[in-house]
């Protein structure tokens, strides 16, 4: 057991490396407000989403990816919802037409620890960029 020091040092390093995301979250205070659910602002002008709330909560990302494939790759922009209503498959026009990104999307994403989905690297929030320019009709 001459190598005991090394073995235990190695083990300690391994455990530290494995748990470092948790420590990082604690250090940043991200893990502290877990008990309090986020205060999400719902759209005032609409009562119904493109799918029931439970479905949206669980699977909006899959739906967005499906929309993305349909629009970009197949040129199919028409979405017929569960209740027969027809929507345009568009994150900016349809989703953000009702929802407020900062008070809805971002708050819940921050709460669930997915604070920066890369959608926003390219897609815009009409409300944040609207000030810089009047909305054009492409």
């Amino acid at each position: 057991m001459r190598d005991r020091v090394w073995i235990f040092a190695g083990l300690a390093f391994f455990v530290a490396a494995l748990t470092c995301p948790a420590w990082y979250a604690v250090a940043n205070g991200k893990a502290s407000n877990k008990s309090k659910p986020p205060n999400l602002e719902l759209p005032a002008n609409q009562k119904e989403c493109v799918a029931p709330a439970g479905t949206m909560r669980a699977a909006h990302m899959q739906m967005l990816i499906q929309w993305r494939e349909d629009v970009v790759r197949h040129g199919d922009r028409r979405f017929v919802a569960f209740n027969g209503k027809v929507y345009e498959k568009s994150l900016t026009r349809t989703c953000l037409g009702c929802h407020n990104k900062e008070q809805f999307c971002d708050r819940c994403h921050a709460y669930s620890g997915v604070s920066d989905p890369y959608c926003w690297n390219c897609h815009n929030d009409p409300q944040t960029v609207a000030g810089s320019r009047t909305r054009s009709t492409p």
Binding site: T92, R93, Y118, N121, C122, H123, N124, D125, P126, V129, A130, S132, R133, R135, S136, T137, P138
Partner: peptide, 11 residues
């Protein structure tokens, strides 16, 4: 200069 919200930017 000014972003058109109806069209994505690129990354």
């Amino acid at each position: 200069e000014s972003i058109n919200p109806d069209f994505p930017t690129r990354t």
